[in-house]
């Protein structure tokens, strides 16, 4: 590790911190239904959309109505995207002349983008027409992110309101999140990306002659626009197969910086907006402190492991000072590869600028653990906030049990009913991840897809289902996942991970909204102090981490010890 490397990481945190308050305040205004400086332009568009969709903006929904709207919208998105992918060969904007996407891959991809996972079992530049990329995948990049924000808003209102029957209007929340937050920022960032050298064209490719005289086809397309929302919406689905390691998707150290800042900006600002909307900004800062601590630990773990390197290579004469550069782009180096890897898995982005499967065993384990913690650092836009709030509810419950008081969070009593919903949400991840991993590790057909034997092979399967169920979408590499088995089961894991988590959370929101909000007294456990921050970190590590420890022990941990004893995979 170097001072320069840590300086780069530190600067990243400074830039994001500077963005949190202005963006968070703006988002709080948008989601409270107040006028903003964009209302003059976007207000008529918003009302036209409501009129076209028959939405009564002033009519709010119960948590169940909100959940049904979310599911109906997602089902419609799945069907539309599936149809586009299956019919792309007869649809326009297909200059490459690609055929229909195979049925199992279309299912996997449609579910993947509707659930904000953006797992890519395909190579974008060799599979998807421009129409599929733009009208299919990029549209879902916007609306799936907006759906996540909408769920988080419902939970936020549950804490902010007292004795309320409703938690908001899903259609209004989704429309405002898309129109006022995601769309304007995506336009600005896309233009910045174009200025940094990302292609934005409807041409299919250019032909080039290499130095050896061979002909090469260099794929092009509307890359910058997709890259912008890919990061702002924490989607992660890249235009190219190798994602942000591709020089057209992430050409410079500066574009890499902007990538990471975009990932962190909205998701962090949303936590601040939560504090603003519940009337106590300190609550938002406390949750951001938890995020910052755990994210720094994650970045530090990867950075340390990759600069420590592989002693087997050193024994072969490779300069140990270089650490492990396998799977990394030289233009980013170890520090900014570590920062990208931790951020993209700490939240639910899933884009990659390096190959996580080529990291050292412990360096590869860190992104895996960050996904398994629930991607709450600060999480996918929306999904991270409501995931963190579930852990906060668990933390105050544990604290209440320890001191013998009725647990309370933001003036709302946390009782058995809320705990049942919280636990149903928390348990869905281990169920989907460990269940599907165990089955795949036993099926000869599924095992045949792994690229490496030994514990690394288990890590490949474990990572794939963690990424899918956690709605992350990053790939470990090595696993040939474009098979009917993996396309189908990973798709189901994505649906369970997204909605199996969100539905109990919405139920919890409905239950909490109905409670009367009491004012804090001397006996109230404060939830904005360093003590609570420490408690919450402990709960996250215990509840989120320990469930997966046995599987990790059989994968990356044993691989690390085998590396130290001279065996590598």
């Amino acid at each position: 590790m170097s001072l320069v490397g840590w300086g780069q990481i530190g600067l990243l945190f400074v830039v994001v911190l500077a963005l949190i308050k202005p963006l968070g305040l703006y988002m709080a205004r948008v989601f409270s239904g107040e006028r903003t400086w964009l209302s003059v332009v976007l207000g008529p568009v918003e009302h036209a959309l409501y009129a076209a969709g028959g939405v009564r903006a002033d009519r709010e929904q119960t948590w169940l109505g909100y959940a049904f709207a979310l599911l109906a919208f997602s089902a419609a998105g799945f069907l539309l995207l599936y149809a586009i992918l299956r019919l792309q060969h007869v649809l326009p904007l297909n200059p490459q002349g690609f055929g229909a996407v195979p049925a199992d891959l279309a299912f996997n991809t449609a579910v993947s983008f509707v659930t904000n996972t953006n797992w890519q079992a395909y190579g974008g530049e060799t599979t998807m027409s421009h129409l599929s990329q733009m009208a299919g995948l990029t549209v879902q990049n916007f609306v799936s992110a907006a759906s996540g924000i909408a769920i988080a808003l419902a939970v936020t209102r549950a804490f902010a309101r007292s004795a309320a029957e409703t938690v908001g209007n899903f259609w209004v929340d989704m429309t405002r999140a898309t129109l006022y937050v995601l769309l304007p920022l995506a336009v600005i960032v896309a233009l910045a990306f174009v200025a940094m050298g990302l292609p934005q064209t409807l041409d299919a490719s250019v032909a080039a002659t290499t130095l050896e005289g061979a002909n090469q086809t260099i794929a092009l397309g509307p890359v910058a626009s997709q890259e912008a929302i890919k990061q702002l919406g924490t989607n992660g689905g890249g235009f190219f197969n190798v994602n942000a390691a591709h020089p057209f998707e992430n050409p410079t150290a500066l574009s890499n910086y902007l990538n990471i800042v975009c990932m962190l900006s909205i998701s962090s600002a949303l936590v601040y907006a939560f504090g603003q909307m519940v009337g106590d900004r300190r609550q938002g800062w406390a949750l951001l402190a938890v995020t910052g601590v755990l994210l720094l630990i994650g970045i530090g773990a990867i950075y340390w492991a990759e600069t420590y390197g592989n002693p087997i290579l050193a024994s072969l004469g490779v300069d140990p000072a270089m650490g492990n550069m396998e799977g990394k782009e030289v233009r980013f180096g170890q520090a900014m590869t570590a920062a990208y890897a931790a951020v993209t898995t700490g939240l639910s982005d899933g884009g990659v600028n390096g190959m996580h499967g080529s990291f050292t065993a412990l360096g590869g384990m860190a992104p895996l653990v960050l996904i398994q913690l629930g991607e709450i650092l600060p999480g996918g836009v929306g999904s991270g906030l409501y995931g963190m709030l579930v852990f906060a509810v668990l933390a105050v419950f544990v604290a209440g049990l320890m001191v013998g008081r009725t647990p309370e969070f933001l003036g709302k009593k946390i009782e058995g009913r809320e705990m049942k919903f919280a636990m149903l949400a928390v348990l869905i991840l281990p169920l989907a991840i460990l269940g599907f991993t165990a089955v795949s590790a036993m099926l000869p057909g599924a095992v045949a897809s792994i690229g490496t034997g030994g514990p690394h092979g288990l890590s490949e399967i474990l990572y794939a289902y963690s990424s899918a169920a956690g709605n992350n979408g990053s790939a470990f590499g090595g696993l040939s996942a474009n098979t009917p088995w993996y396309n189908t089961t990973l798709g189901i894991a994505m649906l369970f991970g997204r909605f199996g988590y969100a539905l109990p959370v919405l139920a919890m929101a409905g239950s909490i909204a109905a409670k009367t909000r009491s004012t804090a007294t001397a006996g109230t456990f404060p939830t904005h102090t360093p003590l609570f921050v420490g408690l919450l970190i402990g709960i996250i590590l215990i509840m989120g981490g320990l469930q997966f420890f046995p599987a990790l022990a059989l994968g990356p941990i044993v691989e690390h010890f085998q590396m130290l004893s001279g065996q590598t995979f």
């Binding site: 169940l64 959940a67 049904f68 599911l71 997602s74 089902a75 799945f78 069907l79 599936y82 299956r86 019919l87 049925a103 199992d104 279309a106 299912f107 449609a110 579910v111 009913r417 049942k420 919903f421 149903l424 189908t488 798709g491 189901i492 649906l495 909605f499 199996g500 539905l503 109990p504 919405l506 139920a507 409905g510």
Partner: peptide, 30 residues
């Protein structure tokens, strides 16, 4: 254009989401 595989995968996706809607209804009774 629609073939058996399409019917299966559309049913799988839409059916899973419909199952989740039933799950939500069940949660409302807790």
């Amino acid at each position: 254009v629609f073939i058996l595989a399409d019917i299966i995968f559309i049913a799988l996706g839409a059916g899973t989401i419909a199952g989740l809607a039933l799950y939500a209804s069940g949660l409302a009774r807790i």
